[in-house]
Design a protein around this nucleic acid. Structure first.
Length: 337
DNA sequence: ATAGAGCCGACTCGTATTGC
DNA sequence: GCAATACGAGTCGGCTCTAT
């Protein structure tokens, strides 16, 4: 999202706030966007973060990443009641285009939730631009991030490795180029740019766009702690999410299990006595990344995926663990932008 | 509440064109 | 000849609307 679109979204949200409350917010632009919500009544200034489509994962991301100088105000097209509740509980302010808002700037206090979303034109709805962060695009981005050799491969090789069609690979790469995430440095030599933002976009889009499509089913094990001594390797499977994070950091006691496998679930079910259960705490997923993707160990999913799964859970301890994984693994492996 | 029709977006596939 | 790119046709799945 570029600066102009950010400001447009903020201006529209401010109009909604003005209409609903009679406050006269004042936008200030420096290195980032700032908002004085009621300059005539309080000098309190918020640092604005625009997130057109707010999801549980993006709230997790924001909660994990922000160490702001000023209190934070999230501006989105729509903040649903559950997210509103969650943001308020963390004392993070929000504004949306439906007129929902939480602003805690004494003596000014606003809390509105439950307004329905307005059917407005999204600022992030350009089909070509989104291609990189839909299911096919997410596979391509993941392959490029985890197997950098592919940056210098042909379109066909990239498409094969990512498990998408040639046309989808082409559209995804074009979208990445358009958004400044992919730089052509010569004939078939490419470089990823702005890794941090790219990982953020991937992390936010993964639980919505790709994860539901790789889900094979939910299961339940005969007893707790079964995963501690289970050997997945013979079944072409790896640990994701909380179990992988526990093994990488020793910081978590897993409650939910996610397993990524290249085979059908039958053999895993037979080996570990798993039963199908729509409310089970075990999720089986089809592996979507190429074998050459870098992993931390033979039985662990790539760190980028583990990070995204933790962030998507919304659990505070998971988010903290995700931050550790990012800082002590992902960030160090990135090329400088 | 549910089933069926219709619509739409995302994706794949095939093919034509262009450039090296 | 091969790779990159563009584009149209077709498929699939999800969503909404409507009739029952």
């Amino acid at each position: 999202m570029d600066g102009l679109q950010e400001q447009q979204l903020l201006e529209q949200a401010c109009e909604c706030l003005e209409g609903a409350t009679g406050l006269h917010p004042q936008i200030e632009r420096a290195s980032s966007l700032y908002l004085r919500v009621a300059p005539e009544r309080t000098q309190r200034c918020f640092e604005v973060h625009t997130v057109p489509r707010l999801t549980p994962a993006s709230v997790s991301w924001i909660a994990a990443r922000l160490e702001p100088e000023y209190p934070v105000l999230i501006v989105s097209e729509y903040v649903n009641p559950r997210l509103a509740e969650r943001l308020k509980s963390m004392d993070i302010g929000y504004l949306d285009l439906a007129g929902n808002a939480y602003i805690n700037a004494p003596p000014v206090y606003v809390y509105v939730r439950g307004n329905k979303p307005v059917a407005a034109e999204s600022v992030d709805r350009d089909p070509a631009g989104r291609a990189a962060f839909q299911s096919a695009g997410l596979r391509v981005v993941f392959a490029l991030l985890c197997a950098p050799r592919l940056l210098h491969a042909t379109y066909r090789e990239i498409a094969d490795a990512a498990g998408v069609s040639l046309g989808s690979a082409s559209r995804s790469l074009q979208a990445l180029r358009d958004q400044g995430f992919l730089l052509e440095t010569g004939s078939r030599t490419r470089r990823l740019h702005n890794h941090h933002a790219l990982i953020q976009r991937w992390t936010l889009a993964y639980p919505e766009q790709l994860r539901p499509r790789t889900l094979l089913g939910r299961y339940r094990a005969p007893g707790p702690g079964w995963w501690e001594h289970a050997d997945l390797e013979p079944y072409g499977a790896v640990w994701g999410g909380e179990v992988a994070a526990a093994r990488l950091t020793g910081y978590l006691i897993p409650e939910r299990v996610s397993i990524h496998t290249r085979m059908t679930p039958n053999r895993l079910m037979a080996a570990f006595g798993l039963r199908k259960d729509p409310d089970g705490d075990i999720e089986l997923h089809q592996t979507f990344w190429p074998p050459e993707c870098h992993t931390e160990g033979p039985e662990l999913a790539p760190r980028l995926l583990v990070h995204a799964e933790l962030m998507a859970s919304g659990d505070e301890r998971n988010i903290e663990t995700a931050r550790m994984l990012y800082e002590h693994g992902l960030a160090g492996r990135l090329e400088p932008d």
